[in-house]
Amino acid sequence: MAGEGTILLEWMGEAPMEGDLLERVRQQVETTFAIPTRVAAVNGSPADSLDPRRGQHSSTRILRWILTTLPPGVAKVLGITDVDLCIPVLTFVFGEAQVDGPAAVVSTARLRLTYDGRPASARLVEARLLKECLHELGHTFGLVHCPDVTCVMSRSNSVLDVDQKRAGFCRDCRQRLRALTEERDDP
């Protein structure tokens, strides 16, 4: 996987970047995918992503913006934001990714709250963020949703779903991921 380039975790939140949290996530991502991974804060932000009526940001527009600012030598970029994300027809999304593409975005906004809206513990937030990062990056490597609810690739529609899954791929997804990355290595 040497010629693959790196994975970039790009902080694009409104609050200052939480370096320690992101560093721990980075290490896990790097071990899981066996690809060099780095963290950086982004310069600038998409101007058109806010939907003023809903007070939420369009994940699709953020994704497009990430694509236009793709740094060279980077295989995958995962934007991490603290604003609440939505797509026009859905009330919210945790994140959005291009299946088998270079970009994904994930939001910490809902991951910071318990199911009934109270602040969640720092440990829980970190666990959730790691899972959603692995999930969205999994998409960019070509994985789709997994029916195994304990697999990190299962679709989460609430934090309860996120908490239910492990911070790792099930056997099927792991195999598929290996096949997908090997396919890329020797065409």
Partner: peptide, 17 residues
């Protein structure tokens, strides 16, 4: 008829396979 709706919904469903 809205491009952004088509795009985002398509991606959302593609993630489901």
């Amino acid at each position: 008829d809205e491009e952004i709706v088509r795009d985002s919904l398509a991606r959302w469903l593609e993630e489901d396979g």
